[in-house]
Deep mutational scan, measured.
Amino acid sequence: SSYVCVECNFLTKRYDALSEHNLKYHPGEENFKLTMVKRNNQTIFEQTIN
């Protein structure tokens, strides 16, 4: 599966890399929402900020 930060167009295969991205680029933000999307037999988790 892949993880994408929709706000930044940041894409990674690792959830911990997304967490690091959030700490660096969205410090103090807590209203993240992950949406699971299936595309071409791949699972993509799209992160948006509410």
Rank of each mutant, 00 (worst) to 15 (best):
V4R: 12
T12I: 09
Q47Y: 04
L18V: 05
K24C: 11
R14M: 15
C8D: 15
F45C: 14
T43D: 15
V4C: 11
F32Q: 04
V37W: 03
C8E: 02
P27N: 06
L23P: 01
G28I: 02
L23R: 06
R39C: 05
S19N: 13
D16G: 08
N41W: 02
T48H: 06
N50S: 09
T48E: 07
N22P: 02
R39Y: 03
K13R: 07
V4Q: 09
L18G: 01
C5Q: 00
Y15P: 07
C8W: 00
L23V: 13
S1M: 02
S2T: 13
Y25I: 13
H21Q: 00
I44F: 08
L18H: 04
E20Y: 03
V37A: 09
E30T: 11
N50I: 03
Q42D: 14
M36Q: 14
E7A: 10
N50H: 08
F45R: 11
T12C: 04
N41A: 06
T43F: 10
M36P: 14
N9P: 11
F10H: 13
Y15N: 13
A17G: 13
N9Q: 12
T43W: 10
T43Y: 12
H26C: 00
I49T: 09
F10L: 10
F32M: 02
D16Q: 12
F45S: 14
T12R: 03
G28W: 03
N40V: 05
L18C: 03
R39K: 14
F10D: 02
K38R: 09
K24W: 03
S1N: 06
K24L: 12
N50P: 07
T35I: 08
N50T: 03
H21M: 00
I49Y: 13
V37L: 08
N31A: 06
V6R: 05
L23N: 15
I44H: 07
T35W: 06
A17T: 13
N9K: 15
V6N: 14
T48N: 06
K33R: 08
Y3N: 01
V6Y: 07
E46H: 15
L18P: 01
E20D: 14
F10S: 07
Y15T: 11
L23S: 11
H26P: 00
N31M: 05
V37E: 13
N40L: 05
F10N: 04
A17L: 14
N40M: 05
R39Q: 12
E29V: 12
P27Y: 06
T12H: 12
N50Y: 05
L23M: 06
K13C: 07
I49R: 13
T43L: 07
M36E: 15
P27W: 08
F45D: 04
L11P: 15
Y25R: 13
N40K: 05
F32T: 15
C8M: 00
T12N: 12
N31P: 08
I49A: 11
E7K: 14
P27I: 06
Y25T: 13
Q47L: 01
N9S: 10
G28V: 09
E20A: 05
Q42L: 10
L11H: 12
Q42H: 07
N9H: 13
N9R: 10
R14W: 14
N41K: 14
H26Y: 00
R14I: 15
Y25G: 13
M36N: 15
L18T: 01
N50M: 05
Q47G: 02
F32A: 10
K38C: 04
I49W: 11
N9A: 08
M36L: 08
F10G: 02
V37P: 01
E7M: 07
H26G: 00
M36T: 15
H26W: 01
S19H: 02
T35E: 13
K33Y: 01
Q42W: 05
V37R: 09
H21L: 00
S19Q: 15
D16M: 08
T35L: 08
S19V: 05
H26E: 02
L23Y: 06
E29Q: 10
N9C: 04
T35P: 04
V6H: 11
E7H: 08
S1Q: 02
L34M: 09
E46A: 02
K33Q: 03
R39I: 05
T48P: 05
D16S: 14
V37G: 10
S2Y: 07
T12E: 13
T12A: 08
N9G: 06
F45L: 10
G28T: 08
